[in-house]
Computed example of a mutant assay.
Amino acid sequence: MLAAGLAGGAAPPGRPPADGRRPIAPLPAPPPAALRDRVALGARLYGDPRLSASGRISCQSCHDLASNGATGARRDPGDNGAASPFNTPTVFNSALNFRFNWQGGMPTLPDVVAASLRNPHVMGGSAPGLRRLRADRTLLLQARAAYRRDLDEAVLIDALSRYVRTLTTPGARFDRWLGGDRAALTAQEQRGWEMFQAVGCVSCHQGANIGGNLFERHGIFHPLAAGGPPVLRVPSLRNVAATAPYFHDGSAPTLAGAVRAMAYAQLDITLSERDVRDIVAFLGTLTGHYEGRPVHPAAR
């Protein structure tokens, strides 16, 4: 956790490393949209509340594509009205994670889609939704054209998984800077990037998704957030400036507060206010675009 800087030394401030040794990589281009008819079916299902057991909520209800890919709530209600035990993570770029959900118990995207459909605290079970969806002749014909079979749970899972893989947010200023655009970051943002490396944040938040690729114990040196599982999947920091509240329990309402708390609990470091401001400024450069517009916070 306390590893500092880039392997072999950090690049001079204001200049991206020239030798390829860097802990964060630009967001990769989305894969070619093969089987577009299946992706289109997934897009239609994503926003359809008939998919839930009650017929009241859709994937979009908790993973809002018009804002931050999640919501502004600390914990979202599921199909049965009960609050989720964890804060909703953003769906944007989630297909790049190596495991899914806060506890990382789902190894593949189809696994987490299936679990969400079947969970009474999320979508409530797929059987009632399937009965309603199959009564929609237009949707039924769309599914048959895409899959050459009737609409069933396997079709739902595959179509939704394919669609979620398309939900990436390119165009972050930090990615442009990594690509050689030296004007993409301000001096303060560059200081924040250097501090992010120097204190050890980058030890857990790295790779193309700036996290999402390992497990870590929370509260290493000091308590952090609520109890719950002692080990969690490290979240991605892409679009983090737009995804408040923070932590698995949603207990940190501001990014500055989350940065301060993480440094103390995970690294045993008390950051100065200037360092907090600089790191927050850097984190703001990780905001990408979806359908041509910047990802932005959800209404609360």
Rank of each mutant, 00 (worst) to 15 (best):
L65S: 03
I210M: 03
L51N: 08
T108V: 06
R132T: 08
M123K: 14
I279L: 09
G211E: 00
A127G: 13
A18Q: 15
T166A: 00
F247G: 12
A83N: 10
H296Y: 09
T90L: 06
P294S: 05
V91H: 09
P26V: 06
V164M: 11
P89D: 06
A66S: 02
L65G: 02
M106T: 13
L214I: 08
A95M: 02
M123D: 12
A34G: 07
L185W: 00
G288H: 01
T168F: 05
P110H: 01
S52A: 14
D79I: 06
E153Y: 06
T166L: 00
P89I: 01
R131T: 10
A10F: 04
G207R: 06
W193S: 14
P85I: 09
A73P: 02
N239L: 04
G288K: 05
M123Y: 11
P23W: 15
V231I: 08
L224I: 06
P17H: 05
D136A: 04
G5L: 10
S67K: 04
R162S: 05
A25P: 08
P12R: 08
N80C: 10
L185R: 07
R165K: 15
R132Q: 04
R22H: 11
E273K: 01
I57E: 04
P110Y: 02
S161P: 10
D64F: 00
T71E: 00
S251W: 08
